[in-house]
């Protein structure tokens, strides 16, 4: 197995205070390796999104260790957490979260702009990323002129344009029909394989199992199972 790009060790996360306090994660350990597409599955309220947020340096764990590319996130300031996200993590959201006032190209470019990447280089890379997701012909379109599947592809291009170590996707296919969902997963599997990127997909969608390198199941804040797909079957899908 390749080295973990992202790792949670015995992570506990408590949300809320007083009587409404909930323990969302109860000692979760999970490592994402480059080149792997991991599906994180579980019922609603099982802690999937909390784990995704902690791995993506958006939330800090109550206890436990999180490492991103070998760097621990313990005791670091919010701005340093932001820098870790900027440098190592690409996010894909269920509802895309594209900027409605920007074109597809500018939406993708934005991920590089926040890294102060020079404009000409950023435009070149953004075009490449859009080509990777098959949207070269929609660069100048605004989100409202794109279908749900196309918007999610733009979101994927935005997530991968900075060449992150890991891509974290929160139910990326739940708002899409079957064909679009399959197409999106195909792109994500391809990114994992070709860019040696660790991809973690939170999902309920059983139609996308076949794209996974492994499937991790979580319930009540604990990892309750893990299946690894046969290497040859993944290669066939890729």
């Amino acid at each position: 197995m390749t080295e973990a790009v992202m790792e949670a060790v015995d992570v506990v996360k408590t949300l809320g205070r007083g009587p409404s306090q909930v323990q969302a994660l109860r000692g979760v350990s999970l490592a994402l390796a480059g080149g792997e597409l991991t599906l994180l599955m579980g019922p609603s309220g099982s802690g999937k999104t909390t784990l995704l947020s902690i791995l993506g340096c958006i939330l800090s764990p109550t206890s436990g260790i999180v490492r991103v590319c070998g760097q621990s996130t313990a005791h670091i300031q919010p701005e340093d957490m932001a820098r870790l996200r900027r440098d190592h993590v690409g996010f894909i959201f269920q509802s895309y979260h594209l900027f409605p006032t920007l074109t597809a190209l500018d939406n993708v470019r934005l991920a590089l702009d926040v890294r102060d990447e020079p404009s000409a280089a950023a435009i070149f890379k953004a075009k490449e990323a859009l080509a990777t997701v098959g949207l070269s012909h929609k660069m100048k379109s605004f989100p409202r002129a794109l279908s749900g599947g196309e918007q999610q592809r733009v979101a994927i291009a935005r997530a991968i344009v900075g060449n992150p170590s890991a891509v974290l996707a929160d139910e990326p296919t739940s708002a899409l029909d079957g064909d679009n969902g399959q197409a999106i997963m195909k792109v994500l599997a391809q990114i994992a394989k070709e860019q040696s990127c660790g991809v973690l997909v939170v999902t309920h969608d059983p139609r996308i199992f076949r794209f996974a390198s492994r499937i991790v199941r979580i319930e009540d804040g604990r990892i309750v199972g893990e299946e690894r797909a046969a290497q040859d079957s993944i290669e066939k899908r890729g």
Partner: peptide
């Protein structure tokens, strides 16, 4: 606000 939250999630600095 959603867009600014997305910017923050993408790792944009406060300065940006």
């Amino acid at each position: 606000l959603n867009e600014f939250a997305t910017l923050r999630a993408m790792g944009s600095s406060a300065r940006y």
